[in-house]
Design a protein around this nucleic acid. Structure first.
Lengths: 236, 236
DNA sequence: GTATCCAATTTTGTATACAATATTGGATAC
DNA sequence: GTATCCAATATTGTATACAAAATTGGATAC
């Protein structure tokens, strides 16, 4: 947005710092999906009062990374498989708008920025670095920001975050993240100004991510169902 | 989302009630864009503590209806003209996904629901009711919800809300809201299962809304610019 | 008369204290 | 041995109290 960045809740830093710390922890899977997030412990651990933690949790809830059940506290969100499908469907639509907006309009500087990013992706991939997956997501975020459409960038950012959770829940354990080559191809098409190719490349790319992220079959997504399976195995 | 509705911050009702009250007030333009929202006064007026008001304001900030500047308090958001363009561009993409998802898949019950809604729109329009404009927005929200894609519905809802603010800032005073006939045409195409027609109808429809909402020319959108104009007139 | 600086007031930012609700563990009844 | 109920505990929901920052108003100097 114009005046203030929005999406920035309020404070100079304290609540914001906790928010970022928790978000990072969740996206890095240091806090696995479903992990309870008691206000007290977190506050104690981070050296802030519950008030601050609470604000951060509320904000994360707004972004779908944390679930809040009344009188039962917060936990890292466990989006359903259906949520995953929904999220990727929306990504498909929004990232199509991203490439449509960007095709043929990238400045040389922006191209350099993008290439630097995919280089970093390659390096991290080679080093088998843990944040290889993080960088892959950030490519999409960077692209969205280059559109100069704040709304679009915000939504794409949020969707990419949620995608991480989905991947951690339903993706193959060491699922190969976005193929860096696909990112390079998209950049190439954008530079050439080939809208059509860029769009279909992105579309296929996201389809590929979706497939990798939602590998698990339809069954056993809900907790009750999961238990039912075990129950059946034990003849209960 | 699956488990808890998300977008529902936390509490059984109190903070939620204040949130809804403020949101309603903003969307009804009872609180004009830019209006200061001091935590104390609001809390006193609504009979809750600042804590609650603060939570509600933070949530509204997350949805772009309220701006929060550090140590300077909250006020009703004043999205820029550029924000308006951004928002409608995203709406174009997402509502295209809505009609694409819905075309040929509406149940008879859903069709009835939609027709009842546009009937209500017509009635409100005839009565020159103030919530005619509100109903017009809710048509888009209803459509989005029918997709059964929670993520999509959430984003469209948020975008429609923000559109109200945009309209209040930059639209023609008594700007005719969505033409109800256009809504009917869209429903018709959806029922027929004519994806192509439905998509282009929606696209044109949103373009029409965009035009009405962003009538004002490029000049004078920012406060400083506005002052500059007055200053110039006075030879300052 | 204008501009600058300082103090008083107001409003936000944060922590803590209290109230209400949910969970857990054990005890009792069958 | 199992199930049910109740009390103790822990955690969330809310209000209030205190600290910090910004705005406002007036007073003083030029």
């Amino acid at each position: 947005m114009s005046s203030t960045d929005s999406t920035k809740k309020s404070t100079t830093s304290k609540s914001d710092a906790v928010y970022r710390a928790l978000k990072r922890a969740i996206l890095d899977q240091a806090l696995a999906a479903g992990t309870k997030l008691p206000e007290d412990s977190i506050g104690e651990r981070l050296g802030v009062s519950r008030t601050i933690v609470r604000q951060a949790l509320a904000r994360l809830n707004g972004e779908g990374l944390v679930e809040l059940r009344a009188h039962k506290g917060a936990c890292v969100a466990q989006p359903s498989l259906q949520d995953g499908r929904d999220i990727f469907a929306v990504r498909q639509a929004l990232e199509a708008l991203v490439v449509d907006t960007l095709a043929g309009r990238l400045t040389p500087q922006q191209v350099k920025q993008l290439e630097a990013h995919v280089d970093a992706e390659d390096a991290a991939r080679a080093a088998n670095s843990s944040h290889s997956i993080q960088l892959a997501g950030e490519f999409h975020v960077l692209l969205a920001h280059l559109t100069d459409n704040d709304m679009l960038a915000r939504y794409v950012t949020e969707l990419v975050s949620r995608s991480s959770l989905i991947l951690s829940l339903y993706g193959r354990p060491h699922s190969s993240d976005c193929a860096v080559s696909e990112h390079r191809e998209i950049i190439h098409a954008l530079v050439k100004g080939d809208k059509k190719t860029a769009c279909s490349l992105m579309s296929e790319h996201i389809s590929a991510i979706t497939t990798r992220a939602l590998l698990k079959t339809d069954s056993g997504k809900d907790f009750p169902d999961l238990l039912a399976a075990y129950a059946k195995a034990e003849g209960l």
